[in-house]
Amino acid sequence: MPKTDALQGSLDLLVLKILSRRPRLHGYAIMTAIASTSGEVLRAEQGSLYPALHRMEEAGWIRAEWIKKDTGRRARIYELTAAGKKQLGAEESRWQSVSLAINRVLREV
């Protein structure tokens, strides 16, 4: 699954941000949340969402839990950990500096 670091980084950032605002979401809800809050501009590619979630879980940024849904099926919901909050801060400031830099380049040209 080839993917550039910037894209992967931004997916992490989006997921962490969504989870910081609305804890305890399952994968599908995270995906729709990204789409709706970005005004349907950003769409998390479905194929990379779960590997990203699992990677962040192994890194200890988010924590997963099985719950029973109304339909009787189980769903796996995620929430932010303390380490995740710190990571979110770092990702946000990185994003800020990158976008600032890109904007500056755009203005100059």
Binding site: H26, G27, Y28, A29, Y50, T71, R74, A75, R76
Partner: peptide, 15 residues
């Protein structure tokens, strides 16, 4: 993992 992915697709269908 499979169960989680299945539940994702079900959510999509449900919505």
């Amino acid at each position: 993992i499979e169960e989680e992915l299945q539940s994702h697709i079900e959510e999509a269908i449900a919505s």
